[in-house]
Simulated scan of single mutants.
Amino acid sequence: MNDKLTIRLSEAFKSKLDIFDTFMNNGANDKEIVDLEKSLNQILPSSYIDLLKTYNGEKKSVGLMGGFGFLGTEEIVLQWDFFKTAESNIEPDSVYQKDKIKNELYSVKRIPFAHDGSGNFLCIDYDPGVEGKNGQILYLPTGDPEPVSVIADNFDEFLSFLIDAVTTEKLELTDERDEWDEEDWEKAEIYFDGTWRDDWTDIADEYNLKQANN
């Protein structure tokens, strides 16, 4: 069940960071989800909706999405509006899996659900290449000269990746509360960050290997 993935994800992060919930917004309500889907003109994955109903984005960035910040409903529409108004003929610096990804940077068929604050996004892709999968998860670097990459077949698979990453500490917690008195904890650096060497290209390599072995 999709909701079990969300519960497992929340429990995995809480097992590493006891104050995890204080970083997260309250969940979106049904109207906010309906309005989001209408704005995007897209039916969203049930596991993604369930996660938004649990946490409507991050109150203070903790790196829930593999070191990226998880966007709330209003932020999603704001970033998607930028995709919509950007020049449609802009091509990325490179595409990692050319048969799976269309050679474009901005598309209204890509739903940004996470970002790093530097112009790089994680997106749900509803306009894949000829051998891609509808709803596949993309790393979309619009701020850095890196390849656009498929990192998961769907949002469920991406949540499973996050659960494994935080459990095995591939997604590593920095927690500097020990360096501050409790009343000053808001000044401490507390965040999760990926330990993979070549940003998301390493994850795309793991995805490619898994696909080759299936």
Rank of each mutant, 00 (worst) to 15 (best):
M1H: 14
K4M: 15
L5W: 03
I7H: 06
R8F: 12
R8D: 15
L9D: 05
L9H: 03
E11L: 15
K14V: 02
S15N: 15
S15T: 13
D21G: 07
T22P: 00
N25F: 08
N25H: 13
N25M: 07
N26S: 13
A28W: 02
I33E: 05
E37S: 01
S39T: 11
Q42N: 11
Q42M: 15
I43L: 15
P45I: 03
S47A: 15
D50K: 05
Y55P: 03
G57I: 00
E58Q: 04
K60D: 13
L64C: 12
L71S: 03
L71E: 00
T73N: 08
E74W: 01
E74P: 00
E74S: 08
E75I: 00
I76D: 06
F82M: 14
Y96I: 10
Q97C: 13
Q97P: 07
I101C: 06
N103R: 14
E104W: 02
E104N: 13
A114T: 02
D116Y: 10
N120Y: 04
F121H: 09
L122E: 01
P128Y: 00
Q136R: 08
L140W: 00
P145K: 09
P145Q: 12
V150Y: 03
A152C: 04
L159K: 02
F161D: 06
I163R: 10
V166L: 05
T167H: 03
T167I: 02
E176K: 09
D178H: 10
D178F: 07
D181W: 12
D184C: 13
K187R: 12
A188L: 02
E189V: 12
D199N: 15
Y207H: 05
N208T: 15
L209N: 11
